[in-house]
């Protein structure tokens, strides 16, 4: 066991230039993957901000009394997906109108009475903020006799939903491409470092080392390459996004979970890359021997 760790450690430092190239390539691959992860996190944040803006308003009939308002409030609250409700009286609506349309506030003066209806602002849980559920909830609210109309910007919600789905698909495709490209690049780099030590593997095989004894030092070395590469790229990303967030405060920067994702991705790449490479190297050595005309 001591040998295995010693050999992995030695392997890393003995082949300094190869190790540096491998770690460098892993860093670049994971840096690109990290950019993608942070980009996705920011995209999700934007979507959440947009979804937060979705609100439903139930307009109340003119002649509804206090009891009616109380009962419709309770009824709306009992609908699945409704988080909270907020009653806006006619007066409050007028105040809000004047606040919102400062310059044209005198528009209301043409009316004898306040034309703005009382309403109930319905806050919907995030899980229900999709076209189907919003439509269902609005239809249920519209059935109450105290409610004259329900509005939640159906068209805008549909458009947002379409955009989110589209972005999500693009994001997943991009993520898969970047992840596969990283696996491919890292796999090939690790493969080169292992192939460079083909003679050593050949001798290990010759003197009777078991497969796990041959493979484990290379796998540990590969994991170390992956981990180091991912930590370097996480460091660079951290500095980059710390700088960017001073310019764009709303930006989601590096956080512990992103660093963890990158580290796990790096370790995964190193592990998969090295285990596949060393197995391939061993089978190439063996296959080569069984096919070639041996030197006599």
């Amino acid at each position: 066991m001591i040998y295995i760790f010693q050999e992995a450690f030695k392997g890393f430092f003995k082949n300094k230039s190869m190790s540096l190239i491998t770690v460098g390539i892993v860093s670049v691959s994971i840096f690109i993957f990290g950019l993608f992860i942070i980009g996705t996190a920011n995209l999700m944040n934007l979507i959440k901000l947009a979804e937060d803006k979705i609100e439903m308003v139930a307009y109340i009939n003119e002649n509804t009394n206090e009891n009616g308002i109380q009962s419709v409030r309770n009824n709306i609250l009992s609908i699945a997906g409704v988080q909270s409700v907020e009653y806006i009286s006619k007066e409050q609506a007028k105040e809000q109108f004047i606040k919102d349309f400062k310059d044209n506030a005198n528009l209301l003066e043409v009316f004898e009475n306040n034309p703005l209806p009382a309403s109930i602002k319905v806050h919907i849980s995030i899980a229900y903020k999709n076209p189907e559920n919003l439509k269902n909830i609005s239809e249920k609210i519209a059935l109450f006799k105290e409610v004259s109309d329900v509005d939640y910007g159906a068209e805008w919600v549909d458009e947002l939903d379409r955009a989110v789905k589209f972005l999500f698909i693009i994001d997943i495709i991009l993520g898969i491409i970047i992840a596969l490209a990283s696996v491919f690049i890292v796999f090939n780099t690790i493969r080169l470092t292992i192939m460079a030590r083909k003679d050593q593997i050949d001798i290990m095989d010759l003197v009777g080392a078991t497969e796990s004894y041959i493979e484990i030092p290379y796998i540990i070395e590969g994991i170390f390459h992956g981990l180091l590469g991912s930590l370097i790229s996480a460091g660079i990303l951290y500095l980059l996004f710390s700088f960017l967030s001073t310019k764009f405060p709303a930006l989601i920067s590096m956080n512990n979970s992103i660093i963890c994702i990158l580290a796990i991705f790096g370790v995964f790449l190193g592990f998969i890359g090295s285990i596949m490479s060393v197995k391939q190297c061993l089978s190439e050595i063996r296959d080569f021997k069984s096919r070639k005309k041996v030197k006599i």
Binding site: Y3, Q200, V207, G208, A209, I214
Partner: peptide, 20 residues
């Protein structure tokens, strides 16, 4: 078939180390 990056002692010990 000696390993060029190891000295004589390590080349011989290698056969023992890798076999546990």
């Amino acid at each position: 078939k000696l390993l060029p990056d190891r000295n004589v002692y390590d080349n011989v010990a290698f056969a023992l180390k890798v076999t546990g």
